[in-house]
Design a protein around this nucleic acid. Sequence first.
DNA 1: GTAAACTGTAACAAAATACATTACAATAAG
DNA 2: CTTATTGTAATGTATTTTGTTACAGTTTAC
Lengths: 136, 136
Amino acid sequence: MNSSRFPVSLHILTLLEDAKGEMVSSDFLAGSININPVLVRKEIMNLRKHGFVDSKEGKGGGSFLAKSAADINLGEVYKAVKNVNILGQSKNEPNPKCPVGRQINQHLNDLYIDAEQALIDRLSKQTLAAFAAKFK
Amino acid sequence: MNSSRFPVSLHILTLLEDAKGEMVSSDFLAGSININPVLVRKEIMNLRKHGFVDSKEGKGGGSFLAKSAADINLGEVYKAVKNVNILGQSKNEPNPKCPVGRQINQHLNDLYIDAEQALIDRLSKQTLAAFAAKFK
DNA sequence: GTAAACTGTAACAAAATACATTACAATAAG
DNA sequence: CTTATTGTAATGTATTTTGTTACAGTTTAC
């Protein structure tokens, strides 16, 4: 997917933590983030798939954290949300007749995995609880 | 700019290191990377601006490394190329009436800077020379 | 039991971004 | 003076991201 999924997801999670277990509607979330409610629901679908939140349908429904904010770290959130390579896509097909072109995707990939791990390690040091506490 | 600037720049630099100081034309580079020569020249403009390469116009012209590959590390290359936030853009305007919306961009930004620094630190451990040597 | 407030999800539209192409002036070599 | 090349602008095309509309399904409350 896209480029603003992490900020959107973190914004959602922060609002849910703020709500202290109260149901929060996708319309309310969308209003704070200032994006379309359908996008919020799509993002919530993903957060739910990863066990961070749960939702209740019907009148008075909405979403809420499925586990304590202290048990969610930002590295996990990042992993739940990222699907593109951090250092840029290498979707193109380099020239296989060139020794560099032939091997570069493999080497880039190795580099990506290593660099991204450093990023995730850093993010994992911060919990959602700690992040949300900054808004107090 | 875009998502494939880092791989393209690194591909260029690797080819130039491979060429051992010989001039390499943007057409040749574009052929290995399999993108348009104009994009290569634009990327080279940036690499030149950052002192990694130099170019010579006219017949027989092309580009070459402006300093030893041992003195270029991948963190520098990353910094020369990245202009979007690593964790995604937060270009949108969250609702200023919401306590979370009002402050989130500042907190996201702090997080970005911290996380990106971890990434850069990791990338900085590898030189262009070491990366290019993998293609031997 | 039906109206209201929601979620879930698909289909489509619009906007933004990235990438490619064309064109051509300027430069340098031979 | 011809040829190969960079530098750069302008424009077109494709891809990706985001927004919108629509509506079926679920739950609540009266």
